Computed example of a mutant assay.
Amino acid sequence: MKYFKILIIPILLIVILSIGCERDDICPASTPTTPRLIIDFLDSVNPDNKKNVFDIVVAGVGNDFILDGYNFVSASTLMLPLKTDDNTTQYVIFKEAEVNDNGTLDDNTDDFVDGNSDVITINYSREQVFVSRACGYKTIFKNVTLTIEPDSDNWMLSRQPLTDNQSVEDETTTHFTITH
């Protein structure tokens, strides 16, 4: 009986603590979070066909970062993150990009990306959507517009949203097409 009294207290504490606990507040990797804008590149001669852009580099305008995954690659689809703290995001997209060493082979601090570049401006309104206690909120984007900024050598010829009043709520479908 003495051992029973000694064991009953820890057992009761474990039971009480187990009842009061919730499942771990860890956001599963499979939970959809803030979606990225999906752009498909189409052939200007045959707009029903996707067409790769070769040696593509994508960089944010106003900062010096090159977007992960788009660093001298060939792609027919881009997945671009949009700013969640602003209603506008701009990217410069280089076609047939190369590194210009600025005439100094041994000094890469002055190197820069060179190639045919076009700037796209994406405007939208933001809405916060509660996902779960573990995952918090995600941002969805409404009334999304995409503009190809005109320059003297545009390689992007036209753009088309897939739906009127385009929104970006998931990453399962294309949101815009661009012909080149």
Score class of each variant (00 low, 15 high):
Thr139Ala: 09
Arg36Leu: 07
Glu98His: 14
Thr177Val: 05
Ser74Pro: 04
Ile122Glu: 00
Leu80Gln: 02
Thr163Arg: 11
Thr89Met: 05
Leu80Lys: 02
Leu13Pro: 00
Ser76Gly: 02
Asn102Phe: 14
Ile16Lys: 01
Leu105Ser: 10
Thr104Asp: 12
Asn52Gln: 10
Ile120Leu: 01
Asp101Glu: 13
Val15His: 05
Ile16Cys: 12
Asp153His: 11
Asn100Glu: 03
Asp170Cys: 06
Leu80Ser: 07
Ile140Trp: 08
Pro161Ile: 02
Leu42Tyr: 09
Ala75Lys: 10
Lys5Met: 12
Asp153Glu: 09
Val73Tyr: 04
Tyr91His: 06
Ile38Gln: 05
Ile16Asp: 01
Lys50Trp: 01
Pro10Leu: 11
Tyr3Val: 09
Asp85Thr: 14
Asn52Ile: 11
Thr121Leu: 07
Asp85His: 12
Gln166Ser: 08
Met1Gln: 04
Tyr137Gly: 02
Phe65Trp: 07
Ile120Cys: 02
Asp170Ser: 15
Val45Asn: 10
Leu82Asp: 01
Thr174Gly: 04
Gly103His: 06
Ala97Pro: 03
Asn46His: 12
Arg126Gly: 04
Val15Met: 11
Gly69Val: 13
Leu157Met: 10
His175Tyr: 06
Asn49Gly: 02
Asn102Ser: 15
Asp85Ala: 13
Val45Asp: 04
Asp118Thr: 07
Asp25Ala: 12
Val119Ser: 02
Lys95Thr: 07
Pro81Asn: 08
Asp40Met: 04
Leu67Lys: 03
Asp40Ala: 13
Ser18Thr: 15
Asn165Cys: 05
Phe54Trp: 06
Val99Asn: 02
Val131Glu: 06
Asp43Thr: 12
Asp43Leu: 14
Asp107His: 09
Asp43Glu: 06
Gly103Ile: 04
Ile66Gly: 01
Val144Ser: 02
Leu162Phe: 08
Leu78Arg: 03
Ile8Asp: 00
Phe41Ser: 01
Asp85Lys: 14
Asp55Tyr: 15
Ser18Cys: 13
Ser167Asn: 09
Gln166His: 06
Tyr124Cys: 03
Lys5Tyr: 15
His175Leu: 04
Pro10Phe: 13
Pro10Glu: 05
Asn116Ala: 12
Gly62His: 03
Phe54Ile: 10
Thr88His: 03
Asp107Gly: 05
Met1Arg: 03
Glu171Leu: 09
Gln160Cys: 05
Asn154Pro: 07
Asn116Ser: 13
His175Glu: 01
Thr104Gln: 13
Thr121Met: 07
Phe72Thr: 05
Asn143Ser: 15
Asp40Leu: 07
Asp24Ile: 08
Met1Tyr: 08
